[in-house]
Every structure is written in C-alpha cells, then in structure tokens.
Design a protein around this nucleic acid. Sequence first.
DNA 1: CGCCAGGCCTTAC
DNA 2: GTAAGGCATGGC
Length: 296
Amino acid sequence: METGAIPIDELAGGLDPYLTLESGQSYRWRRSDGEMYGGERNPDAWYETVVDGEVIRTRARDGVLEWESTTDADTLLGRLLRLDDDLEAIAADAPADALIRDAYEAHRGMRLVEDPPFATLIAFICSAQMRVRRIHRMVDALAREYGTAVEFDGRTSHDFPTPDRLAGATEADLRDLGLGYRAPYVLETARMVADGEAHPADARELDYEPAREYLTRFVGVGDKVADCVLLFSLGFDEAVPLDTWIRKAIAEYYPECDRGSYAATSRAIRERFGGAYAGYHQTYVFHFMRTGISDV
DNA sequence: CGCCAGGCCTTAC
DNA sequence: GTAAGGCATGGC
C-alpha cells in the first residue's frame, strides 16, 4: 500500500470531499461507512474508487487530505479532485449576484471533479429523470456486475466496466439493475464505443459547442447529458448543463436568459455566468438549489 | 393516489 | 427548426 497526505491549507480555496463527491457530479466513489450517497457527513469515512485498475481512497481529517492506494496516487488524485484549481480565484470570477454569492458561501471547498469519460458518459445517460442517489445506485450496480474486481487492503472494489464488457450485457440484464428505459441507450452507446465508432474523449479536440454536438451522437445523450460529460470529465468549464434545477434558477433569478431553445438559453446563461468558468458556477448553483440553504 | 427526478426518443408539423 | 407524447422506477 502506498499512502500520502496533502495539507488542505495548501490548496487555494480548500477542499471539501463530501461536497465534491456527493453533489451529483461523480458517481464513482463509494463511502467506507456504508452510508448512502448524499447521507450524513462523516469525516472518518473514506471515499474509495477504482480508476484503470488502481484503487484509491481518501478522506479529509484535521486539515489533511489523506490517501491510500495500490499505486502512487498523488498525481491521479490531484487530477480526479482538481486540486490545482484556485477556488478563490474561481469564486472571484463569478458574477456578484445574491444567488451565486450564497451558493459559494454555503458550499465552501466544493471542487469540480474530472472523472473518466466513458464512465461519466454512461452515468449521465442513466441520470435522465432520476434522482442523484439512484444514479449512484445504478452506476454502482453496473460496476459490481460488469466491472473488474480489484482487491485492496482486504476489501473488494470494482472498476467501471469497459465498453466491451458493458456491450455484452442484455437489455433485460440492465433493466434488472433498475435502469428502466435507459437500458437500451446504455447498451447501444457501449457498443458504439466498443466498436470504435466514436469515443467521448474525442470531444476534447473540439471547441465547446461542436464538442457538445459531437457527444449527442451517442444514444441517450442530448444537449444536457452532453454538457455534463463535458463539464465533469473533459475539462469544459464553460459548459452549463440545463437541468430542471438550473431551469428553476433561471426562471426565478435570470428570467431574461430563458431564450426558448437549449442552445440559445445555454449561450445566455453562460454569458451571464461569465464565460470561462460558467460551469463551475453552475455546479454551485445546482447544489444550492437542490439541497437548500439548511441542508449543507 | 399523483407528482417529480441532473431528459431523450420518435413522430408530426 | 419546434411541440407533443411515451417512457421505468422509487420516494414522498
């Protein structure tokens, strides 16, 4: 086992793993205390994931981000949790309206994640008309049933399935895991990636709007899911997923940004949120709208 | 029971 | 290009 410790006060703007990993961005971390996704905060619990066959677990206690891993995970953890982001500068970049100010105030230390593209693509296909706790449950089930098992420190974890393994499932199998009408979408998208027709990571080479358009070729991926994949796995910090909560925020706080179509409303709210980090600000507003002020 | 959840698909204009 | 209807499932 390799281990490490990162002083949190060395990270500009700090880090709150609970907010970062249980705010509906990443569905690939499990808590060691068995608490459900979005349950009570527990500083003693580890967050554990598997990336490319390597297990990493981490937690923040006494001002230190501890990690344990099958490998030297310092760089990988820094990428997954975007530890190089200057949260203070990003917060300062946000427009100074009351909603955004309150959202940043309520969720100090929440960072964007950078998850593996294929897992993110599948997770957000599953996310359609679904609550975040159930999305986590579905992604967990997919990993358990089709992902490679990895032993670490006496515990078994599962990597996210490869496109090939997932494409080998049947629609009935996936419906049994609770995916509902998303089951054929997941199957067909997994097959597309497995067959080399397209890969979500290829969107990295494109500008933002063409990248969003590119991702919608996958079955079960519309503009909203595409924006989530761009924001949470491909580094497009300007992507603003227009989900029910953000649409509610637009209706209540930025009604002039509702331009009817997704593309036009997206441009308007992206400009309202200042462009380059619009998606970062969106994530704060999303979590703030969804959890409310008291539920931090 | 009805309504909602990080929507997308097909079909019809 | 936009509008309407269908779609699984669990939680409240």
